[in-house]
Design a protein around this nucleic acid. Structure first.
Length: 465
RNA sequence: UCCUCCUUAGCUCAGUUGGUUAGAGCAUCUGACUGUUAAUCAGAGGGUCGUUGGUUCAAGUCCAACAGGGGGAGCCA
């Protein structure tokens, strides 16, 4: 038989050109039947659905059919026909089957039946072959693409900020050290401390915790830039919302005040949700059915509503008047705890909330100071189920105020000279925010644990795959 | 890092006040069935009860330490 080009399952299922010979390649999900007829559900990851292969058993070598078990990889050539059974539009009547790789059923860990997420994390090398991870990974891709598309279509430039950074003053958490020094025998100074002058870069370096400061440099030249890259936090965080290695999106815009910043954040989030609703409906329906019956409705409701915007001081008033007993008592000046954010978003307003103008003492040094000398132009977007999904602010563009704030917060001015100097030459008002990519995937897929929305999660005590 | 719960077959779990030979469903294997839909029906195999130590005549069951995992909290995105 002449060689026929492979067609993906996603295209075969949409095809109405019946009775033509096609070739499909993929991994067996199930085989069932008897000694006359067998049905193989084949999946190639192009779509959540399988294509059904119909096998006339007496016409095939028994040894080949024996190898076709759950997990095996095969190439099937045959006639694409309208399905005789219910449940699928088309099926393939197999004429030729080649087995690429077998999967011993006695040891292959993936069964036809569902597995717990905890078990699947232990077999991260195989879990992409499940329906759930296929759906999550396709949605993750869609979201990444939509992010680039949104910014590209809005005149932003993709700026690549460094992954290895020489500054440790960003204040966004513990950092991973990057070094080529011998851990057992490092060069020492006379006082016994490690001599980092002999290290690869001639100074202490770390993995980045944020590309924001560098993104600001880009915005102060290109007007609108964004970063989309990996970030690293060496915090000992063991929660369903934290990773040691995660991806972050950080747009930074010159000539934007905090209101422009909030407008962009809200429009951006809605665009991403709508993009996935439009392009991944099969995967969303699967997740909605299997994991989270409210998922699609919740996504749609965040599209329809306008996010509630209010300042920190007003929010504190609402919490104080709520009459609720919080584990952490509320008063002006405290940082909002998860329980407080949950109350505001899920009980009081019942919609996403954008909180602004936080006390300066609980926020970073680079945020623009308000005239009240108490608060800064920060804005956090709080989502149901997730909590803080975006953190952003208008940046302090005044040279003297920024230097004063650095001194107050013990930020080493000499290390940050390049950042501070942008306020000396052609400074402009500007703003930006950071979106945790995995938290967005978490929200859109309805998954419950952030370890299940990234292919290879990095968490404390876990870097197996 | 703190609090809390869990660890029994390949997977998901049950296992009584400590008491003979540790159970189920699914998966796997064998057989039956001419169109199945996470097929169905019948049968079979499969366990050092996370590890180490202790209490006891006797430990899957009680105690301790350690390891791994879940949930909550903090840190944050």
């Amino acid at each position: 038989m002449e060689k026929i080009k492979r067609t993906k399952v996603v295209d075969l299922l949409k095809s109405t050109e019946y009775d033509r010979t096609v070739n499909v390649k993929g991994w067996v999900r199930t085989k069932r039947g008897n000694n006359k007829i067998a049905f193989i559900a084949l999946n190639d990851g192009s779509v959540i659905h399988n294509i059904q292969i119909v096998v006339d058993v007496p016409g095939f070598d028994e040894e080949i059919l024996k190898k076709i078990t759950t997990g095996a990889s095969v190439s099937v050539t045959g006639k694409l026909v309208k399905s005789l059974g219910k449940g699928q539009p088309v099926e393939i009547q197999a004429a030729e089957i080649e087995v690429y790789g077998t999967a011993d059923p006695a040891t292959y860990p993936l069964q036809k039946k569902g597995h717990s997420m905890e078990f699947l994390r232990e077999i991260a090398h195989l879990r992409p072959r499940t329906n759930t991870f296929g759906a999550v990974l396709r949605i993750r891709h869609s979201l990444a693409f939509a992010i680039h598309k949104y910014f590209n279509d809005h005149g932003f430039f993709y700026l690549h900020t460094p992954i290895i950074t020489g500054s440790d003053a960003e204040g966004a958490g513990e950092m991973f050290r990057v070094t080529t020094l011998d851990a057992k025998n490092p060069p020492l100074l006379e006082n016994g401390e490690v001599n980092f002058k002999e290290d690869f870069f001639g100074k202490q370096t770390n993995l980045t915790v944020s590309g924001q400061l560098e993104a600001e440099l880009g915005a102060l030249a290109l007007s609108q830039v964004y970063t989309f890259g990996p970030t690293f936090r060496a915090e000992n965080s063991n929660t369903p919302r934290h990773l040691a290695e995660f991806w972050m999106i950080e747009p930074e815009m010159a000539f934007y005040d905090i209101h422009d910043d909030m407008d962009l954040a809200e429009d951006f989030l809605k665009y991403l949700v709508q993009y996935v609703l439009d392009h991944n409906s099969d995967d969303l329906e699967f997740l909605n059915k299997m994991f989270d019956k409210e998922l699609i409705r919740r996504l749609q409701s965040t599209m329809e509503t306008k996010y509630k915007r209010l300042d920190y001081t007003t929010a504190i008033g609402i919490l104080e008047k709520s009459g609720k007993k919080f584990e952490f008592p509320v008063s002006w000046g405290v940082d909002l705890q998860a329980e407080h954010e949950k109350y505001l978003v899920e009980q009081h307003f019942k919609k996403p909330v954008i909180l602004t103008d936080y006390p300066k003492d609980i926020k970073a040094f680079y945020m623009k100071q308000n005239d009240d000398n108490k608060t800064v132009r920060a804005m956090d977007v709080l989502f149901p189920r997730i909590g803080e999904i975006i953190g952003g602010s208008q940046r302090e563009e005044d040279y003297d105020k920024l230097v004063r704030r650095c001194n107050e917060m013990n930020i080493p001015e000499q290390e940050m000279w390049w950042y501070i100097e942008t306020r000396k030459y052609g400074t402009v008002p500007h703003s930006g925010f950071g979106l945790g990519f995995e938290r967005m995937v978490l929200f859109i897929t309805g998954m419950k644990n952030i370890r299940d929305v990234i292919p290879f999660p990095r968490t404390p005590q876990n870097a197996e795959f």
